[in-house]
Design a protein around this nucleic acid. Structure first.
Length: 482
RNA sequence: GGCCCCAUCGUCUAGCCUGGUCUAGGACAUGAGCUUCUCAAGCUUAAGGCCCGGGUUCAAAUCCCGGUGGGGCUACCA
């Protein structure tokens, strides 16, 4: 039975790297009919914040990475927050202590820090010197009198640890390089390395899929699994994702958080597709893959071993494809918040005919979008009747005699007709052509500029029917009089 | 510093395990062209890469060794 977990610490927003870890865990679970578990690693009380728990969960939901067990929905191994699992860690700690696989350490923070920097200065590997491992009774009594709160350290056995990693292959570590590490802090909370192992044991995790930054921790974990009498799960350490320049992903820079992409209006399915392509490929040339296809093809063995940089260009490309592919109704609904924010519309839920009109607008400009927030930059021509033509080239074009003739002919035809639709517009263009002898760009451009104020934009036959007869007349008159 | 991981176009990758079919394939971005208005989209096309040095072999992107570069870890952070 495959059981995997995503275990974020709520110390910040979900960023791209973590989202990718969650995604690959989820994919592996779904591909193997296993369970995907969400566990909150909040033992660092200082840095953990409740609102981050909420934002991480809502980002996961947005990406549609549903979990089978988690803090909000419970499950057979509840609770799923480390802060609520202290009893578990205490029990395992007691066990190790009783079996003399762990011991109390009375060294203070300052002492540890001093020894550390001294070792560093002397060019030696800084590691705990295990000095409390064989403390005499009297010494312990002495410390107790001083009321020093001890930390519990794990006795690291001297051996070679072999990690058989699904993506890295066989990796060997020599434990002589690892000092006895803390498993329970003097605050009586578990260290990260200990909590992870206790939880993975009790939650019966079968595969640990996480970032490569944990590869060096893996031997510690393997040692703990063994000491506690359990077989370690399968490890799969995935390569790390970097920011576009190759720099480390920071929780501080905005463009790396899932929330940023959500707010900017990337479609979740585009995001999932893009993230999947980061360090994974189906083995052929396919790049546009549905969730179902990805699940079908997903193999941990195909994860790339080298780290990968985020490429905003490629995301935009993919995102544009999904925007063009999605249903117009859905796309329009998704555009509404942005249109409202830009004050083009007033209501969150427009009436049917307003919605229909919006849908036409969206249809006219959707080819231009690589994310939904960009909608506001393309629809202003539909809403703004009055505008100043600032572009010098556009001004010059309007000034020419040919342009004026075109516009006059256009005005005449429009005023004499009913509402303009696409067919009418096409006929109208033909008429102007025969009447004025102007054709091609010389004909279209003045109309475009008069009506939109710009030299570029979507096809006129699409936008003019949306703008409507009345507004077109006003706009052209204004252009002729300027 | 020590330990560990990684190394194919600018970027994401296929190929590597099981050497030959690789004069290294695809995608994004870039340049050019096409598309009876422009832009966008779409289509066509060009340029661009096996980190370096040894070795093994008839043959190496692929196997081995060394170097270089990048990254991670080295906490009573997670």
């Amino acid at each position: 039975m495959v059981r995997v977990r995503f275990a974020p610490s709520p110390t910040g927003y979900l960023h791209i790297g973590n989202a990718r870890t969650a995604l690959f865990n989820w994919l592996f679970a779904r591909a193997n009919r296993g369970s995907f578990i969400l566990r909150i690693e909040d033992t660092d009380i200082e840095r953990s914040k409740e609102n981050y728990v909420g934002s991480i969960m809502s980002d996961l939901r947005w990406l549609e990475l549903d979990w089978d067990e988690g803090p909000d929905k419970g499950g057979p191994f509840a609770p799923y927050r480390q802060s609520e699992r202290l009893r578990v860690y205490e029990k395992f700690a007691e066990k190790l202590l009783k079996e003399e696989k762990a011991y109390y350490c009375y060294c203070s923070d300052e002492e540890l820090k001093m020894r550390r920097s001294a070792a560093l200065k002397a060019g030696q590997t800084p590691k705990y010197d295990n000095r409390c491992r064989d403390l005499q009774e009297e010494e312990i009594e002495e410390f107790k009198k001083k009321k020093k709160k001890p930390a519990l350290r794990f006795k690291v056995p001297d051996k070679r640890v072999i990690i058989d990693d699904i993506v890295r292959g066989r990796v060997e570590f020599d434990t002589s390089l690892i000092g006895d590490f803390v498993i329970m802090k003097s605050t009586e909370t578990p260290s990260f390395n200990f909590a992870v192992v206790c939880d993975d044991i009790t939650m019966e995790i079968s595969h640990i899929i996480r970032g490569e930054d944990h590869l060096s921790n893996a031997p510690k974990h393997a040692l703990l699994f063994e000491a506690l009498g359990f077989k370690a799960p399968q490890f799969a350490h995935m390569s790390l994702t970097t920011a576009p320049g190759g720099d480390r992903l920071s929780k501080r820079t905005g463009a790396t958080s899932i929330a940023y992409y959500r707010e900017t209006g990337y479609l979740p399915e585009a995001m999932v597709n893009y993230l999947t392509l980061l360090g994974w490929s189906p083995g052929d040339d396919r790049e546009i893959l549905s969730r179902e296809e990805i699940i079908k093809e997903f193999k941990l063995e195909r994860l790339s071993r080298s780290s990968e940089a985020l490429d905003p260009n490629k995301l935009d490309w993919l995102s544009g494809i999904y925007i063009r592919k999605t249903g117009l109704d859905r796309l329009t609904r998704l555009c509404i918040p942005y249109l409202k924010k830009a004050k083009f519309i007033k209501k969150d839920a427009p009436e049917a005919d307003e919605f229909d009109k919006l849908r036409e607008m969206v249809a006219a400009v959707r080819d231009h979008l690589s994310n939904i927030s960009q909608i506001k930059d393309h629809v202003d021509v539909f809403f703004k009747d009055k505008f100043a033509i600032k572009d010098k080239e556009a001004q010059d074009i309007l000034k020419s005699a040919a342009s004026k003739n075109v516009l006059k002919a256009f005005l005449e035809r429009v005023e004499g007709s009913n509402a303009i639709d696409e067919d009418l517009f096409n006929n109208l263009v033909k008429d102007i052509q025969t009447k004025t002898g102007v054709k091609g760009r010389l004909l279209y451009q003045p109309i475009r500029i008069a009506i939109t104020g710009r030299i570029h934009g979507p096809e006129l036959k699409l936008i003019i029917p949306i703008i409507g007869k009345e507004s077109c007349v006003r706009r052209v008159k204004r252009a002729l009089n300027s």
